[in-house]
Design a protein around this nucleic acid. Sequence first.
DNA 1: ACACTATATCTTCCCGGGAAGATATAGTCT
DNA 2: AGACTATATCTTCCCGGGAAGATATAGTGT
Lengths: 176, 176
Amino acid sequence: MTEDHTEDHVARIQAEWRVARPDLDVAPQGVIGRLHRIASHLTGELTLLYAKYGLTEGEFDVLAALRRAGTPYERAPGEIALHTMVTTGAVTKRVDRLEEAGLVHRRRSDADGRGRVVRLTPAGRRLIDKAFAAHMTNERRLLGTLSPAQADQLEELLTSWLADLEPPGDTRAVRE
Amino acid sequence: MTEDHTEDHVARIQAEWRVARPDLDVAPQGVIGRLHRIASHLTGELTLLYAKYGLTEGEFDVLAALRRAGTPYERAPGEIALHTMVTTGAVTKRVDRLEEAGLVHRRRSDADGRGRVVRLTPAGRRLIDKAFAAHMTNERRLLGTLSPAQADQLEELLTSWLADLEPPGDTRAVRE
DNA sequence: ACACTATATCTTCCCGGGAAGATATAGTCT
DNA sequence: AGACTATATCTTCCCGGGAAGATATAGTGT
C-alpha cells in the first residue's frame, strides 16, 4: 500500500498542515477547501457546455438574465450587472460581444436619456432556450450520484450557510 | 409585505425560471447556484485577508505550498503548479512577483539543468506563518454559525460529492 | 557520439473582468 | 433658468491567468 485511497486531496493537504503547523486547527479546510474544489470543477464543466453554444460563462449569464425577464426580454445594463454580479463595465463588454454576434440588440431608453435597453434578438432567444435546457441537464448530471435525499440535505445546509454569509438586503444576484 | 424574506437570491432566480420555462426542472440550481454563490462570497473574504499581508490569492497559495513542504521549504515550479492547480506559466509569474518581494528565492536545480528550485526566504516563511494562522481564523469565522454537527454533515456530503467529480487518480491539488 | 523524443520552465500573446474616471442626462433646489 | 448633485453607461488602463510556442536540458535507442 503506497496510498490511502479513501483520502482526497483536501485531506492530504490538511495532513501536511498538521505536520507543518501542529499548533493550528485546520478543520475548516475540510469544508471550505472541498467546497472550493467542487465549485472549480463545476465551473469547468459548465463552461465546457457554454462553449458548445459559442458562449462564455459571462455571456450565458447575460442571455439568461434577459430570458428570465420574460417578454419582451429586455433589461437595462445596470439591472443586468446586478443580476449577474459583475460591474457595469463588464456588462458593457459582454453586451458588445453579444451584439456583435447578433444575439442581443441595444438601443437608447425612451424614458431616460442616460439609459440603454438591451433586448434578446430572436436568435438570442433561440440560443439561450437551447443552451439553458442543456445547462439544466448538465447540472443534473453533475449532481449525479447524490441521492435526492442527500441533495435536499445539502441544499438545506447551503441555504442556511448562505443566509449567514449574505447580509439580508444584499441585492447582488447569483450565477445561474 | 413586498417581499418574502425567507427566500434568497437563488430561490428568486429559480422562481423566475419556473415562470419563463415551466417545462424545465430547475431544482439542480438549488444546490449548484448556492454553492457557487457561497464560494464567491468566501473567495472575496479570503482575498481581503490575503491583501492585508500584501498577497494575492495566487501568491498566498504558492507560499502555502512551499510552507507545507517542510524544511527547507523548497519545491520545483512544476510541483507548485500541480499543488496550486494552475499552469506553469502562472507559477512563473507568481514566483516572479514573490521573488521581487523577497519572499522566495529561485535557483537552478543541481540534479536537473532544466529544473529550478523555489525556496521560501526567512521573510517568506515568517509572512506565510502569520498569514496562514490568520487565514485559519478567518475560515473559522466564515463557518461561523454552522454548528459543529452541521459542519460535519456538510463536510461529509461535500466529500462524497467531490469523490464523484474527481476521478480517482486525478493529481491536481486544491485551493488552501 | 548522434538523432530523436520527452520534459521543465519560461515567454508571448490574448482574454475577461475590476477600478476609476469620463460623459451625458436627470433631478433638485433656489 | 442656472447651479449643483446624482445617476447610467461607457472608456481606459491594469492585472492575473490560460494556451501555445520557444528554449534548454535529459533520456533513450542505435
